[in-house]
Structures are given as structure tokens and as C-alpha cells.
């Protein structure tokens, strides 16, 4: 019995060892994970993209897409301040961005200033503060560029541990509150009228979004992170007919795009020797998927008509 197992495991091991020689591309892909920073990027990327996609469905349908964008700019500001003060960037950013999320939600609900204008106000203000702080301290350098557009080498082991812990909370809470999130997204006034505490669930969505945005910022960059929230939901809404299908499809698309984007940015080396930026690659894969789904939707419409 044990002998059989050993033989089997050796066979499997041998198969995988032989793979790199047989299929060159796969070999390079496997080699990619021998680097600690690539492993870190993959773990953080997978978890954050999953969270972003799940929450994104609700945010897009509630017409809150821009909240993700606004929050990431707030994240940039706090990241710049935290670096200037030599504090742990994520630990400082998360509570500040969570506060900003509650504030944005409040402003949108009160309706005194229209939601989109309020978000633009807050996001440009924090971007300006961030840029000022950066130029007064370290000056505009590669770090700033990394904050703006993301860099996987910036992901440290401590970030990975924090990301795993917090995304685990998001991924645990989402299924537990799935039906409530659906009801609050589809028809807030009905949910409220029949005795559901919609304010609490809106806060929950904002809280989870804020955490997800900050965690994804190192990899995707402040300017690109909101694409993880918006694109998968928009793509799956082209084709899926039920809320459940949209949610699952978004999660699959999001994970696929992050893994593909990571692989492409690792494999492709430009003639000038630099590799493709990860964040931008992931966004472009998302764009391709979106266009593909949109075209299938159009073709299906034609066929039916």
C-alpha cells in the first residue's frame, strides 16, 4: 500500500519535473513561482481580486462604482503620509479609508451634494494632499510611481499575512450576508420598509470595500485598483441573467484576469529590457474580457432578433 503510494507520488513528481522540458511556456510559469515576490503577488492578487469582484457587483448595481475610485485616492494620500512618518502603510491606511467610506456613503445618502460630486471632491483633495506630502519629504521618486500604478515587488511578507487575514474575513462575511446584500442592492426602500436595517448593510458593504481597496493598492496602484471592482461585474452583467450567476461569474473573471495579467507581466520582456507593469496588464486583460462578453451579448441579441 505505502509502496504503491510512493510509486504514485514519484510518478506524479516525475511528471511535473519533466513538464518544464516538454512544454517550455509551462516551465517558465512554474519557475515564476520559485520567486518569493511572485508567490506573494499571486496570493494577494487572488484573494483581493475575489473580494473586489464579489463586492463590485453590488457597488456597480447601486451606482456606487466611483466610490472605489474615490477610496483608492484617499488610500494614496494616507500611504504618502504614513511613509513620510515612517509608519506601517497598510495599518494606517485601512482605518482612514474605512472612515472615508462611511463619510462618502453618508454624503450620498443625505443627497445634499450629489454623490458623484462628493466623491470627486474627496478623491482630488486626498490626491493633492498625497502629492504635497510626497514632494515635501522624499520627492517624486519610484516609490510614488509604485503607489500610483502598483508594483508587485512592493508586497512584503507582512502585507501578505495582513491580506490573507482581512480577505478571509471578507470572504467569510460575504456568503453569510449574501441575501441581505442582494435585497439592499435591488431595492433599498422595500428592504427598509419591511424591517431590514439597510443602513447597517450599506455600512458593511462600504467597510468591506474599503479594506479590499487598500489591500489591492500595492499591487494595482491607487489609480488602477477600482478596475478590479468595476470590470468583472460589468463583464458578467453582459451575459448573466441572475444575481447569483453574476456574482459567481465576476469572481471567476476577476481571478482569471489577475492570474493571466501576472503571468503576462512576468513572461513578457520588452526590447528595452523592462517588464510589463502588473497592474496595467491586469486592467488590459479585464478590458479584453469585457469587450469579448459585450460582443457575445450583441451577437446573441442579433440571433434572437
Amino acid at each position: 500500500m505505502t509502496a504503491a503510494l510512493t510509486v504514485a507520488s514519484e510518478a506524479v513528481g516525475g511528471f511535473f519535473a519533466a513538464l518544464p522540458r516538454r512544454i517550455p511556456l509551462l516551465g517558465e510559469l512554474l519557475e515564476m513561482f520559485s520567486y518569493a515576490f511572485m508567490r506573494n503577488a499571486l496570493i494577494v492578487g487572488l484573494l483581493v481580486s475575489l473580494c473586489a469582484a464579489l463586492l463590485g457587483v453590488s457597488l456597480v448595481l447601486k451606482r456606487y462604482s466611483m466610490i472605489g475610485d474615490g477610496l483608492s485616492h484617499v488610500g494614496f494620500g494616507t500611504l504618502a503620509i504614513a511613509t513620510a512618518l515612517h509608519l506601517a502603510p497598510l495599518a494606517v491606511s485601512i482605518p482612514v479609508v474605512v472612515l472615508a467610506a462611511f463619510l462618502l456613503l453618508r454624503i450620498s445618502e443625505r443627497g445634499k451634494i450629489k454623490g458623484d460630486a462628493a466623491i470627486a471632491l474627496i478623491s482630488t483633495t486626498s490626491l493633492a494632499i498625497g502629492v504635497l506630502v510626497v514632494s515635501l519629504t522624499s520627492g517624486m521618486n519610484t516609490d510614488v510611481c509604485n503607489y500610483m500604478f502598483g508594483a508587485i515587488v512592493a508586497i512584503e511578507d507582512a502585507d501578505v499575512i495582513l491580506s490573507v487575514a482581512l480577505t478571509a474575513v471578507v470572504l467569510l462575511l460575504f456568503p453569510l450576508f449574501y441575501h441581505k446584500i442582494f435585497a439592499v442592492t435591488f431595492d433599498e426602500s422595500f428592504a427598509q420598509a419591511t424591517g431590514t436595517k439597510t443602513g447597517v448593510y450599506n455600512m458593511l458593504i462600504a467597510l468591506l470595500t474599503a479594506v479590499t481597496i487598500v489591500l489591492g493598492m500595492r499591487m494595482m496602484g491607487a489609480l488602477l485598483i477600482s478596475s478590479l471592482v468595476i470590470f468583472p461585474a460589468l463583464s458578467s452583467m453582459r451575459l448573466c441573467k441572475t444575481f447569483k450567476a453574476v456574482t459567481i461569474c465576476s469572481a471567476v473573471i476577476s481571478v482569471f484576469c489577475v492570474v493571466t495579467g501576472l503571468a503576462i507581466s512576468y513572461l513578457y520582456v520588452a526590447p528595452n529590457g523592462s517588464s510589463l507593469p502588473t497592474g496595467a496588464s491586469i486592467v488590459m486583460i479585464n478590458v479584453v474580457v469585457f469587450l469579448l462578453f459585450w460582443m457575445i451579448h450583441l451577437i446573441k441579441g442579433r440571433v434572437r432578433a
Binding site: F182, A193, T194, M237, C240, F243
Partner: peptide, 29 residues
Amino acid sequence: EIGYLPQQTAAQKDFPASVFEVVLSGRLS
């Protein structure tokens, strides 16, 4: 215990949800 049929919002017009999902959400409270 109050059932409510609100005026439709613009967001609902393109909402991806099945009829069963919508009706079932009435049981949420």
C-alpha cells in the same frame, strides 16, 4: 408585516436578477 410595492427605480430596470430571486427577497425580514 407590511408588504410594500414601491415606485420602480432606474437602477432596477437593468438589474440582473431572476424572478425567483426577487420574489424570495420578500422573505428577508
